[in-house]
Design a protein around this nucleic acid. Structure first.
Length: 666
RNA sequence: CGGGGAGUGGCUCAGCCUGGUAGAGCACCUGGUUCGGGACCAGGGGGUCGGAGGUUCAAAUCCUCUCUCCCCGACCA
């Protein structure tokens, strides 16, 4: 009988479960405890004064440590609520992982939390190899945010509140300020660097539009870490360490991910890399090269453009006013002039919001007119545009604003003859031209007059700009930007972001005044990095990447259970006893097993087993008479018979195979 | 913030137009028959019809306001 206990892990499982129930174990008696469990594997009664356990006056009644479906709360749904549209949202609801409480706010039930705990354990184990775990508050005072300037920058995305004294607080949406505050008050010498500090904590962000179930929520768990280094080389090292650890984490979680160049957004900083999982439910677009390793978020991606065919000038080659009645759309203009849309200059006029600080430390937002010019066949990338001019938000101009800034109507806007500012986001208009307009000639553009366009317009000669920058989105099929040797054509796909690492530089250490002394006794500002992983998004992405009509299957490493033992008929004593014994055996071997001992028909149990994300199933049914059970791999649907005595070994080999496959994929 | 849609039992929905005792399927409880892919029979419990106000003899239904949730957009001139 002691043969059931095959490794140390099982006894540690037993111990931690007992401790969770308030028991204190005497270390040298552990082996006896294991014997008790082995002898009565499915129900243990430990009374007061139990000789093997030390606990004063306890009247513990310990049911089996095994997980029995009949005793658990796993509320599966036959149909998903109509609110749910995204696959992961539907299935996580149907499988009883989550329940919605509000827009972007979710309850995590037993299976969901169990899976998240496994994800967190992996993240923690890997992060511990490079960093030190902290735990910072979720409720934060205003002051550090004012110091960094982000009390105003974060705008409505930040949940704000006041305490009884009227002091302002917020719910933490990220923790650069707090970590930097610790560094400022505690770090004194270069000898204390480098430091990598991390935490796994709840974040709050008042998203303008939560959606897609768990894809975009207002409260979520994040592993965030922060590095402090003495110089850029040190930051590179910290960044690379995170890159490597993140790859291990996502690989261990069984995700098919890709690392891409990214925009650094509101966090600030230079180099930035996202870890993405391809799925149609994703909100991000990724451009990647099928030939080389180039991959970038569309907010960052560039491409090499083929030189555009230029038109011959007409007349004296100077800009010429042409009557173009009814040609407001790019396509109409191109048709009118019989030109390619690449030879038309498109204008998109925006009002851009700039966050600023008022004299009193409050927020002071201002709107500025911005005209963006680019090729007619290109699209403005608003993230790039905002990044280029330092704006926070934008909207398109209304008719009155068009008249005020452009002196022309929509459909006929153009860059010639505009009055604009030298610097971006000044009092007047900011004119920004996309890089791809440079060097072009003899183009067509709107004349800022209804039903009129100009031809023979050459950028630089006939009009200039506040600044020229890359503000367009690349298109699928354009050439890979890496080198001329790579003749790859970019492909664009949807993806969800599960992790993001970036080099912050001196943004926070500078604004908050963190300093250490270097080897020469000189004050220097430490350079920082910031790194995040969305815990729930790992679960969501895993569901998105592996589901079918009946449900989903998770990688073994993050599944709430490794295997479900399905008894086809619980009323049959042979089947019941066989399954109890088998499940106890698996449990003792350190395998997370869920015994479906419900008094339900086989069909119901099969449907549920297929639904809830458990990667393997063992069916205890009619083949038991021949000493065999059925082994089912959820992902492939493959099933075969396994002798009762070989189940544990077989399952372990299958799990191993699963791990190898995901590692190969990663 | 703009546009669209939806709130009726735990889930999916009907009823609303044309006001008159609140319904169905699934789920749940009891009993029975069944038992390898979401069984069947019989009986049963459960609903302030999102909320407030109004019209009316009478409101799930008509009117006004409001709350919540979902989707699209915040876009090319």
């Amino acid at each position: 009988m002691t043969g059931f206990v095959q490794n140390w892990r099982s006894s540690s499982v037993v111990r931690s479960a007992l401790r969770a129930n308030g028991w204190k174990l005497r270390e040298h008696l552990e082996w006896n405890l294991i014997l008790v469990i082995v002898l009565r594997p499915w129900q243990i009664r430990l009374g007061k004064g139990c000789p093997w356990l030390g606990r004063a006056g306890g009247k513990a009644h310990l049911h089996s440590l095994m997980h029995r479906w009949s005793k658990l709360f796993i509320p599966t749904l036959r149909e998903a609520p109509t609110d749910a549209e995204v696959a992961s949202h539907k299935f996580l609801l149907r499988a009883g992982y989550i329940r919605q409480l509000g827009a972007g706010i979710y309850n995590y039930l037993f299976l969901g939390q169990r899976s998240l705990n496994k994800i967190i354990a992996i993240v923690r184990e890997e992060m511990d190899t490079i960093g030190q775990e902290f735990f910072l508050p979720a409720i934060l005072p205003k002051e550090p945010w004012v110091e960094s300037g982000r009390w105003s920058v974060m705008g409505d995305n930040m949940f704000r509140l006041k305490d009884r004294k009227g002091a302002e607080l917020c719910l933490g949406m990220t923790h650069e300020e707090i970590m930097t505050g610790i560094a400022r008050s505690e770090l004194r010498s270069y000898k204390q660097l480098p430091q990598i500090w991390y935490q796994i904590q709840t974040k709050f962000r008042d998203e303008p539009r939560p959606k897609g179930g768990l894809l975009r929520v207002r409260q979520f768990t994040m592993k965030d870490s922060y590095s402090f280094d003495i110089d850029k080389a040190g930051l590179d090292t910290s960044f690379d360490l995170h890159d490597a650890v993140y790859r291990r984490i996502f690989t261990r979680c069984g995700l098919n991910f890709v690392a891409v160049e990214a925009d650094s957004g509101a966090m600030g900083g230079s180099q930035s890399q996202e870890f993405m999982v391809y799925t149609d439910a994703g909100e991000d677009l990724i451009a990647s090269c099928p030939v080389c390793s180039y991959a970038a978020n569309l907010e960052k991606a560039t491409s090499r453009l083929e030189p555009a065919a230029e038109m011959e000038p007409t007349g004296d080659g100077k800009p010429e006013l042409v009557h173009t009645p009814g040609c407001a759309a790019i396509a109409d203009v191109a048709a009118f002039f019989k030109i390619s849309t690449a030879s038309d200059i498109k204008c998109v006029a925006y009002m851009v919001l700039k966050h600023g600080a008022s004299a009193k430390g409050g927020t002071k937002d201002t709107w500025h007119g911005v005209a963006a010019f680019l090729r007619g066949d290109h699209q403005v990338n608003e993230t790039k545009l905002l990044g280029a001019i330092g704006g926070a938000e934008l909207r398109t101009m209304g008719a009155e604003e068009l008249e005020q800034y452009m002196h022309g109507p929509a459909g006929y806007l153009g860059p010639v003859g505009l009055t604009y500012d030298d610097k971006p986001l000044g009092e007047g208009l900011t004119v920004i031209a996309d890089k791809s307009l440079e060097g072009r000639k003899n183009l067509v553009c709107g004349a800022n007059k209804v039903d009129y366009h100009l031809r023979n317009v050459t950028p630089g000669r006939d009009f200039t700009w506040t600044l020229s920058a890359d503000i367009r989105s690349v298109n699928e099929g354009e050439a890979c930007p890496t080198s001329k040797d790579c003749n790859g054509k970019l492909v664009v796909g949807k993806a969800v972001e599960v992790g993001h690492i970036f080099k912050l530089g001196y943004k926070y250490s500078e604004s908050m005044g963190a300093r250490v002394l270097d080897a020469n006794g000189k004050e220097v500002t430490p350079i920082m990095g910031s790194y995040g992983i969305g815990i729930e998004r790992i679960l969501t992405a895993a569901v998105e990447q592996s589901n079918d009509a009946n449900g989903f299957w998770l990688p073994e490493s993050i599944a709430p259970f490794t295997v479900v033992v399905t008894v086809t008929n619980i009323a049959d004593s042979l089947l019941r006893e066989t399954s109890e014994k088998l499940a106890a055996e698996l449990d003792a071997a350190g395998i997370d097993v869920l015994l479906d001992d419900r008094d339900e028909r086989a069909g119901v149990k099969f449907k549920d087993a297929d639904l809830v994300g458990i990667p393997f199933r063992i069916t205890v049914g009619k083949t038991v008479a021949q000493g065999k059970v059925e082994f089912v791999t959820r992902g492939t649907g493959g099933k075969h018979e396994v002798a009762l005595g070989e189940v544990v070994a077989h399952l372990k080999s299958q799990v191993q195979e699963d791990v190898l496959l995901t590692e190969a994929a990663g």
